[in-house]
Computed example of a mutant assay.
Amino acid sequence: MDIDRKSDTRTEFAKFGFVEASQRIEGLHAKFVRHEFATHVHDTWAVGAVLSGAKDISPKREPRRVVTDGDCYALPPHRPHAGRSVSDHCEYVMLYVPDQEWREQCAAYGVDPEKFLNSVSSRPQFARQLASFVGLVLRYPEMVAKWTGEWAVFCEAIFSPPGCTEFAQARVASACGSRDFRIVRARDYLREFWDKNVSLAELAREASMSTYELCRRFSATYGLTPHRYQLVLRLTSAKSQLLQGASISEVATDTGFSDQSHLGRHFKSVFGVTPGTVVREAARSREK
């Protein structure tokens, strides 16, 4: 998780940041003990998760709506709500996403935005994913803005059904083959511009289909969403360069990652080892 955790539950803090990607996306990581929010609304979607403690988000004079450790929720624009700790503290993260951007991402994965996390639900994994992405927004906003694939990969993780491993996806690709020339065209486009920031809308135009149809057909054929496919292309190129003796910092820049830690996080998630491990093994091989 990319969020710094505080051990002292009595310490209050609030960290705010934003990125100017396709639309402005804001993040908040906060912990309150005594502070109470007045009833208010946002003009964006408010997607939140409690990391520890508990809070009541209901407006005054309405039934309590308590969100506790590991719970998540999403509020549509202009939905009245408040907030106050109902334990010794409440530490949480929030993501504020413009309505158009949130609905476009939901449509791409066939998700009804009105039903997604419509009520408080216990989803510890989603809470961790949200905390990790908010951490990126707060620490490395230029990275998220530079490559909107970070945002797309996060949306893929929360909207796509679980249980599909990289190995199983590879088998799906070989079984499905290249049945739809539009999907092949989209794949070739990603291969040609693997180091560019290719948006779903741009790729959908190239394939002459909607973003939802593109995501669905592309995933069925290749076992990966378009942005995940592009991410793997970048990482494969990074590994090849590392094996040829390039430095980690040079490779990170060349393959579109903001720094070594950004590259390392995704590299290990796909290959199971860090870039440093590959560099050491490559150097050892050359010495033989």
Rank of each mutant, 00 (worst) to 15 (best):
R191V: 02
A238E: 08
E114Y: 12
V251T: 14
R24Q: 08
R286E: 13
D188E: 13
T211W: 02
H78G: 06
F218Q: 00
K288P: 02
E213P: 01
W194V: 15
E36K: 15
K55H: 06
K196T: 02
L243D: 11
A131L: 05
A127M: 01
L95V: 00
Q129E: 05
W151I: 06
S210Q: 04
G53N: 05
P63Q: 10
M209K: 09
D4M: 06
F271W: 11
K15N: 04
T44Q: 07
E287Q: 15
T277D: 13
A21R: 04
A175E: 09
P162S: 10
P141N: 01
T236Y: 09
R228C: 02
R284Q: 12
A152P: 00
H89A: 11
A252G: 04
P162T: 04
E20Q: 12
L243K: 15
G163E: 06
S240Q: 14
L190S: 00
G17Y: 02
D188I: 10
D195R: 15
P80N: 09
D99R: 13
R187Q: 08
H35A: 12
C155Y: 10
V47H: 03
G48L: 02
L242T: 08
A252C: 05
L190F: 01
A157Q: 08
Y212F: 09
W147E: 09
A168R: 13
R128F: 03
S237T: 13
R216Y: 09
A107H: 09
H40S: 06
F181A: 13
E26D: 08
D8R: 14
G110T: 11
C155G: 02
F159N: 01
E91T: 06
Q169I: 05
Q100G: 01
H78W: 15
I25T: 02
D88G: 11
E101P: 04
T253N: 10
